[in-house]
Write a protein that binds this DNA or RNA. Sequence first.
DNA 1: TAGTGGTCTAGACCACGGG
DNA 2: CCGTGGTCTAGACCACTAT
Lengths: 241, 241
Amino acid sequence: MKPHKAKALHAQIREDIETRIVTGQLMPGDQLPFEVELMQQYGCARMTVNKAMSGLVADGLVVRRKKAGSFVAHPKLEQNVMETMDIPEYARRLGKSYRFRRLSRTEEFLDNAAAKEMGVRPRREVVRVTGLHIIGGQPLAHEARVIFLDAVPEARDALFESEAPGKWLLDHVPWSSAENEISATLAGPEIAELLDTQPDAPCLVLLRSTWRDGVQVTFVRQTFPADRYRFKGRFTPGSDR
Amino acid sequence: MKPHKAKALHAQIREDIETRIVTGQLMPGDQLPFEVELMQQYGCARMTVNKAMSGLVADGLVVRRKKAGSFVAHPKLEQNVMETMDIPEYARRLGKSYRFRRLSRTEEFLDNAAAKEMGVRPRREVVRVTGLHIIGGQPLAHEARVIFLDAVPEARDALFESEAPGKWLLDHVPWSSAENEISATLAGPEIAELLDTQPDAPCLVLLRSTWRDGVQVTFVRQTFPADRYRFKGRFTPGSDR
DNA sequence: TAGTGGTCTAGACCACGGG
DNA sequence: CCGTGGTCTAGACCACTAT
């Protein structure tokens, strides 16, 4: 009946409590057993119980206060994991072909206006790239990107003729923190023609700034026709990791 | 010089490694020291090292393979934590007033068309609520919500005249998993008038289905004028938790 | 002040999987 | 095979905080 793969005890304890929380047997604010009680219930060491509880805390399901005990956290829907902002990955999931078509590539120094829009200091030398993400033969998104050459000097030699700058950067910049903004706009005449849609078509706009070790690496604006793409996300407390 | 608040050793180890990763000293795929080496370096027990490494794995910064060792993970920008989809919380952060103005409330049985749109079976009895989220006197979003009475029978007695249904649900539904979809649309004549904007104004649309223990609790469609609200998110691998 | 969680140790056994 | 990580123990001391 049970799955043959026996789970670790700390994972079992964690799941037991998690189940009682998500099913509503335990309500937000309810107190959980003390560690001492749990180690008696499960007949294990306190470290094992502690590992289970620590995981629940990391997942935001439980809050703990010294001397008081452990309690079911009050749910927050404020944070949601949004997936598939990586367009090639999105295409792969759909089983469709993907290609990037470069429209332009220039090297220049940021003027004041552009720098202000991105919130960086002006006069930084950059590579500007625009292009289309094409999935199954249809353009899914228009992309306008800036890559800062002082952060990624190797970009000077990259042409991005068929390889999307985003993928290139993931392979050349070791790790990054990113800020995203999702907004909406009308396609407008130029992008409408490129995306083969109407100028008054509503579009999703993703703005992303990526940083590495304190210096901005890239800034990108991706425009998706609303009828072709939507951002999907899921919030399942503690189901993963 | 050092902050007087000494951090836990496992947290210190974790930060040391994390720093080397995010600054690029360690590149994706690079091998990390074995646990035995780290316990010698830091002069601590293996459990302590293991706790640090487990945290890095949970944050997706590190992958571990038995016999092979531990390696820096390849970065993915696929998942991003989006914040502030909770409108009252958003108002609070801005230091502005918040109120919910109910526009309508009905109890009915879902017809086939509506059920299909939400992906649930028809003939379920629901409460339908529409209203406006008003921040600093200005309408920020229009909301159209369905609450399933078989999942939340208490909703029959809730009027939602000034309390937003979202907040009410958080207080009455213990925990939930949620699916979100972000899209874009034009305001249209009706919502434009309610939101005090133009019918052809681009708007962000948030669709959210919330489930509890396998049954759908609510479905909501929130419409934000694009010039008043945008979703912001951050992706800082391992910075929090 | 006393109870609780936070942390750490110095061992141990085992499953997995690379060589 | 045998090194690695995964897990667990039975203690211990300490920091915090509710009472």
